[in-house]
Design a protein around this nucleic acid. Structure first.
Lengths: 115, 115
DNA sequence: TCAATATATGAATAACTATTCATATATTAC
DNA sequence: GTAATATATGAATAGTTATTCATATATTGA
């Protein structure tokens, strides 16, 4: 197959090829989006926007089994979206930084949904 | 299970519960993120940042089989990330709006990667 | 109309991931 | 130390999704 090289998008194609980030970088960015691409995890992030919370309260806010929530929290922590600290018997989770909040808000703006 | 209600995050938990968006809205936002959470699709979006391109050039830029790229383009179009128009024998794809670019750039800023 | 090219699509398979269940670890109160 | 509570985790299952292969559609040029 061969494309019509007289079209104006030829230059874009060359630049895209030259500037494609390395596989490892693409994978890292994709992994970040993947973290917030599942409803169960997204609900956790929505919940944590209101402040830090222990697992018990997160389970209350998002529903589902405690075990499932714990697994998802581990994934969110692994990719740096949330952090945790121990507070007595509880483990308290919070969003790791403002970039997370910013991405959530931008997505909602794009979708015309209010948080 | 019962959480220690004397902790300061009690208020956050209540607000989170009250403000959790309905399932349908969470699902819609998650679906948007899911679109850009797979390396193959993310590479397509990275490529299109440099301007509109026909499928042939997209395949060149991102690698993989034409069929696979076509399937991914269909998904990206279904969720509104890209648009397409016919130009003779070719079909030219482009990012659908600036929100898409903005989200990509914010994610890269968060990850300290340069586009 | 026919051949050639670009793109799309259906079905099957393979890879991946969320959830569940059972259980383990860690902390506090006694 | 023991019981009770909170959270985490390993293994299995079930549901989801990306890719491949073969083929279909649509456009152009002859």
């Amino acid at each position: 197959m061969e494309c019509d090289h007289k079209t104006e998008h030829e230059g874009a194609a060359r630049r895209a090829l030259e500037n494609m980030p390395p596989e490892e970088e693409v994978a890292r960015v994709a992994a970040t989006f993947k973290a917030i691409s599942e409803p169960s995890r997204l609900k956790i992030l929505f919940a944590l926007r209101h402040g830090e919370m222990c697992v018990f309260h997160i389970v209350e806010a998002v529903g589902g089994a405690q075990s499932a929530v714990s697994h998802q929290l581990r994934l969110l922590k692994a990719c740096g979206m949330v952090r945790s600290r121990r507070d007595g018997q509880n483990i308290v989770y919070s969003l790791s930084d403002e970039h997370v909040v910013a991405v959530l808000e931008l997505a909602c703006a794009h979708l015309h949904c209010k948080l």
